[in-house]
Design a protein around this nucleic acid. Structure first.
Lengths: 228, 228
DNA sequence: GGCAAACTGTAGCAATTGTTACACTATCCG
DNA sequence: CGGATAGTGTAACAATTGCTACAGTTTGCC
């Protein structure tokens, strides 16, 4: 049986009642359930992305094999959550990664054609779908924006200034570990640490664990603007 | 008057007949037309993105002002083409850039609510919309993928190996200028040139203008795989 | 044809960043 | 409580990359 109330917890079905979901999915719903054992492949990299996979229970990992044959783990996805929602459409709609079950996993697999119908028949669903896509794109854009700054000092300044703006204070709390921040910036962790220390020594910021105080906002703005 | 046949040339209305478009847009269509003089602002950065702007004639430039006040040109868009299609939805749906008319420009401006209705009422339109979004996201992903490689040599190798795969030959034609390739990689132009020269000296590739021959594919694969 | 603008190729030096290694701390979980 | 795991902080050295400057080439356009 499909647990419709669990589905309302997924971003895609947010704001839609279990009853509505039942109606949307229709009578075929029970046939859409699939179970995967640990190690099973839910979707092969570069295979046609002709169905939407929504995890109901369990978790998977997404791996990518590049031209050189190197396998890189891209992300972990836990239920309840839809998978690769953005690659269902587009001119080259293939799974960008291989999805492998990390434990026993139950998923609802919905053919692309049915998705199209569902989107047309339910405005909430359509909005959710478009919102999810847009948010994804916004995150990618934001990250690329950071990559466009040359020096680590510029990236740090930019990041902290935006954090200060969001948190409405000049003493910000880092919203991720320094390790993952280094990864986000695409630089090595020691390099990031060093530059943070340099900026503290230079009097730009004060560092206490994950709490960073912006001491010279104007100068940091200048860094971003004129380089350095 | 709206030139419906011109609209069919936009990616959003691809495959939809002028008559259908007329039906989709409905009676309000004539009220949606707007004219902008050179220098007029079609959309302000960070203003709510509550309408879709489709350029029918003329061209605009998209500029972004960052935290520091630095103004950067992001892209040029010429008619016929929709504007910022991916930022209409999402939790923070604001124009990421300021759109300024570079010459006299005529555009159809469709409110978000109407777009939602249109997408629900026409499957072709919905598919086009989703395809455009997905393609955009795929381009962003692809670019981030390149940014994830540390050295310039790795980026070059990766890029050339993919080009060779696409063009089905080991003598590839660069699909953009070396300048823009440097920008795409997020490195300085002289650094890219130097590394290309180094790779030629090392015997990996042969360079003749925009034509590059991959002489040691296996070793280049190794570069990407093991670093270096 | 000829001018302007964009693009290419190269060099030397300065600066930033990566790498590796090690010690230490915090957090999670049984 | 204790052990494992993830995260932090720092240092020295090597390597890559950026910057600036200049000369030459191609392209587009009048």
């Amino acid at each position: 049986m499909i647990d419709y109330s669990a589905l309302t917890a997924t971003p895609l079905f947010k704001g839609i009642t279990p009853n509505e979901i039942q109606t949307i999915l229709g009578d075929e719903a029970p046939h859409l359930l699939q179970t995967f054992a640990k190690g099973d492949v839910l979707a092969e990299q570069d295979s046609p992305c002709n169905r939407l996979i929504i995890l109901m229970r369990g978790k998977i990992r997404a791996e990518m094999t590049d031209v050189s044959g190197r396998v890189v783990k891209i992300e972990d996805v836990s239920a309840p959550s839809p998978l690769a929602i953005l690659f269902l459409f587009g001119t080259n709609n293939k799974f960008p990664v291989r999805a492998i079950a990390d434990e026993e996993t139950i998923a609802i697999v919905i053919p692309k054609q049915l998705i199209l119908k569902m989107l047309q028949n339910n405005e909430n669903l359509l909005r959710n779908y478009l919102d999810i896509s847009a948010d994804f794109a916004a995150r990618l854009s934001q990250k690329l924006y950071f990559m466009s700054f040359r020096s680590i000092r510029q990236k740090i300044s930019m990041y902290l200034l935006e954090l200060a703006h969001k948190q409405q204070t000049d003493t910000v709390q880092l919203d991720r570990t320094k390790s993952s921040l280094a990864e986000y910036f695409g630089v090595s962790r020691p390099s990031l640490e060093r530059e943070l220390t340099n900026m503290q020594t230079a009097g730009f910021i004060g560092i206490h664990k994950k709490e960073i105080t912006l001491l010279q906002k104007a100068k940091m703005v200048g860094l971003v603007k004129f380089g350095g």
